[in-house]
Design a protein around this nucleic acid. Structure first.
Lengths: 215, 215
DNA sequence: CATTGTGAACGGATTCACAGCC
DNA sequence: GGCTGTGAATCCGTTCACAATG
């Protein structure tokens, strides 16, 4: 029941449950058991029940979980019940892809700012939004009270940009930049360095031996 | 020393060490202690020593690690000592970004095939390579003996494509598709669903309370 | 009686503490 | 003296087993 200090591993699974529930609801499934959720997600049924129990007792013994109700609760828990405002910083190949990606089509989040420092990119339009110069970041972040940022700038500029973001009120960063970020304790950084990801994958491609289960 | 069953968490950190070493070598630093590596990476010094010790004793007591030697060893361990051949499957926004991304500029890997099923994209050129129809995937994977794939196709098509890839010899998949993949035990899947990543990030943006350390 | 919710057991990864070595 | 390498202790997340309950 207590919300104190939920393990990161649990938080990472919550959006997975949410996606499955969205699919089930679209197929008019009203009730789902942890067993079936287990088959859909690849996590064990016990783990799923434990994860959900972190936040309360949402199920009905002998029956299962009501899909719509559980979905509502998960939205609330993750913080997607109100539209989250995010910014994208760095409008290179990856920044462009993300700006056009499902993120923008996702009803839960709204991109309120896209920033770069290249004059050639400033004011180009994407998905109904204009690319702004990075100098305007503080103003826009404060105006929309945005808390979440996606960072795709070159490694050399990342820390400088992060300092600016944090100062402006950003508290959570999805970091694609190829460098470690230094942030105050109240700011959360999730590293999504795709080169690192790919390289560790290569380790497993080499092994012919033992079985590795999908993550 | 024994290579048996290295924890996934260790494998994820190896490329981080590699990147730091590349930077150090570029700055003509010859020797590095686990303490300094700790500052650069954010991992503890003990953890770094343990990680490296999984694969042998690479350091010199009282001194530290030789950067060039350690780099060579890590390249070998990860499997980057010989150029790894990879394919990109799905040439949408994200696939395009990845094809143009540093991945291609990275000397350790070489993209040997890019696939899509949209006729409009077939034969367009990117970074000296032509986009092929997905039907040609088995042939090209076998020709180059590619083992690693980056998957960025829509969720509905992911499983079908995965079956084809696995059958053709792919053993490691970086999965950006918004769905769970079913693969045989010898195939390793690393899920990098960016929507999931972003949503779990939002959880932390909401919390005003306690400190969350960067991952 | 099927399925949730959960304390207890387990196991894997991190941290500690120090022995070993240059 | 300083730093690596590592067994022991600890921490934390997962799995187990079962009591609780609609």
């Amino acid at each position: 029941m207590s919300r104190r200090k939920t393990p990161k591993s649990v938080v990472k699974r919550l959006p997975v449950y949410l996606r499955i529930l969205d699919n089930l609801i679209r197929r008019d499934v009203d009730i789902i058991s942890s067993r079936v959720l287990s088959e859909e997600t690849g996590f064990t049924a016990e783990q799923i029940r434990k994860d959900l129990a972190y936040f309360g007792a949402f199920g009905t013994r002998g029956t299962g979980y009501n899909t719509s109700y559980l979905r509502e609760r998960l939205l609330r828990i993750i913080g997607l019940d109100k539209q989250t405002k995010i910014i994208i910083v760095g409008y290179g190949h990856l920044g462009k892809a993300l700006a056009r990606y499902n993120i923008t089509k996702n009803p839960y989040v709204r991109v309120v700012g896209i920033f770069d420092k290249d004059p050639a990119e400033i004011n180009t339009e994407v998905e109904g939004l204009r690319v702004s110069h990075i100098d305007q970041l503080p103003e826009i972040v404060r105006e929309y009270k945005a808390k979440v940022a996606i960072l795709t700038v070159p490694a050399e500029e990342a820390q400088k940009v992060v300092d600016l973001m944090v100062e402006s009120g950003i508290t959570a960063i999805l970091n694609f930049a190829h460098t470690k970020l230094h942030v105050p304790n109240h700011v959360y950084v999730d590293n999504a360095d795709l080169t690192i990801e790919l390289q560790s994958l290569i380790y497993y491609a080499e092994e012919d031996e033992k079985s590795h289960y999908a993550e």
